[in-house]
Amino acid sequence: MSDIETSTVSEEGFTSTSQIGDFSLTVDALGEDGPDPNSVLVADYASCFLPAFRVGGQQRGHEDLGQVQIDAEADLDDDDDLTAIRFDIHVEADVDDETLADIVERAEGICHVHSALREGLRADITAHADAF
Protein backbone atom coordinates (compact mmCIF):
# COMPACT_ATOMS: atom_id res chain seq x y z
CA MET A 1 0.00 0.00 0.00
CA SER A 2 1.30 3.43 -0.92
CA ASP A 3 1.56 6.29 1.55
CA ILE A 4 0.19 8.82 -0.93
CA GLU A 5 -2.30 8.17 -3.71
CA THR A 6 -3.66 10.72 -6.16
CA SER A 7 -5.60 10.57 -9.38
CA THR A 8 -5.09 13.14 -12.15
CA VAL A 9 -7.43 13.45 -15.13
CA SER A 10 -7.40 15.61 -18.26
CA GLU A 11 -10.56 15.53 -20.35
CA GLU A 12 -8.95 17.61 -23.13
CA GLY A 13 -6.36 20.30 -23.68
CA PHE A 14 -3.70 21.06 -21.10
CA THR A 15 -5.82 21.37 -17.96
CA SER A 16 -5.85 18.54 -15.45
CA THR A 17 -7.63 17.99 -12.16
CA SER A 18 -5.96 16.01 -9.43
CA GLN A 19 -7.93 14.35 -6.68
CA ILE A 20 -5.88 14.31 -3.48
CA GLY A 21 -7.95 12.68 -0.76
CA ASP A 22 -11.04 14.88 -0.35
CA PHE A 23 -9.43 17.79 -2.22
CA SER A 24 -9.32 18.72 -5.88
CA LEU A 25 -6.54 20.72 -7.52
CA THR A 26 -6.83 22.12 -11.04
CA VAL A 27 -3.55 22.77 -12.84
CA ASP A 28 -3.26 24.20 -16.36
CA ALA A 29 0.02 23.99 -18.26
CA LEU A 30 -0.95 27.26 -19.98
CA GLY A 31 -2.00 29.02 -16.76
CA GLU A 32 -5.45 29.87 -18.09
CA ASP A 33 -7.85 27.62 -16.13
CA GLY A 34 -5.62 27.29 -13.07
CA PRO A 35 -2.04 27.79 -11.98
CA ASP A 36 0.70 26.23 -14.11
CA PRO A 37 2.67 23.24 -12.74
CA ASN A 38 5.82 25.25 -11.91
CA SER A 39 3.78 27.79 -9.94
CA VAL A 40 2.06 24.98 -8.05
CA LEU A 41 5.46 23.46 -7.22
CA VAL A 42 6.80 26.79 -5.92
CA ALA A 43 3.63 27.38 -3.86
CA ASP A 44 3.75 23.81 -2.56
CA TYR A 45 7.38 24.29 -1.53
CA ALA A 46 6.51 27.50 0.35
CA SER A 47 3.45 25.84 1.91
CA CYS A 48 5.67 23.06 3.24
CA PHE A 49 8.51 25.35 4.32
CA LEU A 50 6.30 27.70 6.34
CA PRO A 51 5.14 25.16 8.96
CA ALA A 52 8.68 23.72 9.03
CA PHE A 53 9.88 27.26 9.80
CA ARG A 54 7.39 27.48 12.68
CA VAL A 55 8.62 24.14 14.07
CA GLY A 56 12.21 25.38 13.74
CA GLY A 57 11.17 28.47 15.71
CA GLN A 58 9.63 26.32 18.43
CA GLN A 59 12.84 24.31 18.64
CA ARG A 60 14.68 27.59 19.27
CA GLY A 61 12.23 28.66 22.01
CA HIS A 62 10.09 30.94 19.85
CA GLU A 63 6.64 29.45 20.40
CA ASP A 64 4.88 32.44 18.82
CA LEU A 65 6.45 33.92 15.71
CA GLY A 66 3.17 35.70 14.96
CA GLN A 67 2.30 36.11 11.32
CA VAL A 68 4.73 34.50 8.91
CA GLN A 69 4.60 35.16 5.17
CA ILE A 70 6.74 33.66 2.42
CA ASP A 71 7.01 35.63 -0.80
CA ALA A 72 8.40 33.16 -3.32
CA GLU A 73 9.99 33.87 -6.69
CA ALA A 74 11.30 31.46 -9.29
CA ASP A 75 13.24 31.68 -12.53
CA LEU A 76 12.64 29.62 -15.66
CA ASP A 77 14.99 28.79 -18.52
CA ASP A 78 14.05 28.90 -22.20
CA ASP A 79 12.41 25.46 -21.89
CA ASP A 80 10.27 26.65 -18.92
CA ASP A 81 12.26 24.49 -16.50
CA LEU A 82 12.78 25.89 -13.02
CA THR A 83 16.35 27.09 -12.52
CA ALA A 84 16.10 29.02 -9.24
CA ILE A 85 13.71 29.54 -6.34
CA ARG A 86 13.92 32.31 -3.76
CA PHE A 87 11.98 32.74 -0.51
CA ASP A 88 11.68 36.07 1.25
CA ILE A 89 10.30 35.21 4.69
CA HIS A 90 8.64 37.92 6.77
CA VAL A 91 8.17 37.23 10.49
CA GLU A 92 6.07 39.36 12.81
CA ALA A 93 8.15 38.54 15.90
CA ASP A 94 11.29 40.50 16.69
CA VAL A 95 13.97 37.83 16.25
CA ASP A 96 17.68 38.52 15.80
CA ASP A 97 19.43 37.59 12.53
CA GLU A 98 21.44 34.74 14.07
CA THR A 99 18.29 33.10 15.44
CA LEU A 100 16.50 33.58 12.10
CA ALA A 101 19.38 31.87 10.31
CA ASP A 102 19.21 28.98 12.78
CA ILE A 103 15.43 28.68 12.31
CA VAL A 104 15.89 28.63 8.52
CA GLU A 105 18.54 25.91 8.81
CA ARG A 106 16.27 23.83 11.04
CA ALA A 107 13.34 24.33 8.62
CA GLU A 108 15.49 23.13 5.72
CA GLY A 109 15.98 19.85 7.61
CA ILE A 110 12.25 19.54 8.37
CA CYS A 111 10.58 20.55 5.07
CA HIS A 112 9.85 17.42 3.00
CA VAL A 113 9.67 19.34 -0.28
CA HIS A 114 13.07 20.91 0.43
CA SER A 115 14.47 17.42 0.94
CA ALA A 116 12.83 16.12 -2.24
CA LEU A 117 14.17 18.77 -4.63
CA ARG A 118 17.56 18.44 -6.26
CA GLU A 119 20.18 20.39 -4.37
CA GLY A 120 20.67 22.90 -7.18
CA LEU A 121 17.00 23.91 -7.05
CA ARG A 122 16.52 24.62 -3.38
CA ALA A 123 15.23 28.02 -2.35
CA ASP A 124 17.64 30.86 -1.66
CA ILE A 125 16.08 32.13 1.58
CA THR A 126 16.08 35.56 3.24
CA ALA A 127 14.18 36.02 6.52
CA HIS A 128 13.02 39.32 8.07
CA ALA A 129 11.89 39.76 11.69
CA ASP A 130 9.58 42.40 13.16
CA ALA A 131 8.03 42.63 9.69
CA PHE A 132 4.41 43.51 10.41
Rank of each mutant, 00 (worst) to 15 (best):
D124N: 12
R118A: 06
Q67W: 11
L82S: 08
D36Y: 01
C48M: 04
T99W: 04
D28N: 14
R122I: 09
D64C: 05
H112L: 04
P35N: 04
A116S: 12
I70M: 05
G56F: 10
L25W: 11
L65I: 03
E119T: 09
A116I: 09
D36H: 04
G34L: 04
L50E: 00
D44P: 00
G21F: 15
A52Y: 08
T83N: 05
F87G: 04
S47D: 02
D80C: 08
D79A: 15
R60S: 02
Q59N: 02
F49A: 00
N38C: 01
F53Y: 03
L41H: 00
V55N: 00
V27F: 03
G31E: 11
S39W: 02
A74F: 15
E108H: 15
P35W: 07
P35D: 01
D78P: 14
P51V: 06
I110S: 00
I20V: 11
A84Y: 13
V104R: 02
I70C: 04
G66T: 07
H114F: 07
E119K: 14
L50K: 01
D33L: 10
D97Y: 04
G31T: 10
V91C: 08
H128I: 14
I103R: 04
L117H: 04
I125F: 12
G57T: 01
P37S: 03
D36W: 06
G66Y: 04
R106W: 07
R54T: 01
F23Q: 09
E105N: 09
V113D: 02
L30C: 08
H112Y: 13
P37M: 06
V42N: 00
E98L: 15
E32L: 07
R54H: 11
I89M: 10
P37F: 06
D94A: 15
L76Y: 12
D44M: 02
N38T: 08
C48L: 05
A74E: 06
G61L: 02
E73H: 12
D96W: 15
P51Y: 12
I89A: 07
G120S: 10
A84R: 04
I89C: 11
T83S: 09
V68F: 07
H62P: 00
H62Q: 01
T26I: 10
H112V: 03
G61T: 05
D79W: 15
D79P: 07
G109H: 14
H62Y: 08
I110L: 08
I20A: 09
G56K: 08
L121E: 03
P51R: 01
N38Y: 07
E32S: 09
F23V: 11
E108I: 06
V113T: 10
E92Q: 09
V40A: 01
G57F: 06
V68A: 03
S39F: 03
A29S: 11
V42E: 00
P51A: 07
D36E: 01
L121F: 13
L65V: 11
D97N: 12
G31F: 09
F53G: 00
E108A: 14
L25F: 15
I85F: 14
V55P: 02
E98Y: 14
Y45A: 01
L30H: 05
E32M: 09
P37L: 03
A74Y: 15
Q69M: 05
C111L: 10
G66P: 12
D36N: 05
G120V: 14
E73V: 07
A74S: 07
Q59M: 03
D124F: 12
G109D: 04
D77R: 15
E119A: 15
H128W: 11
R106V: 10
L117P: 03
F53A: 00
A46Q: 00
G66Q: 04
A74L: 12
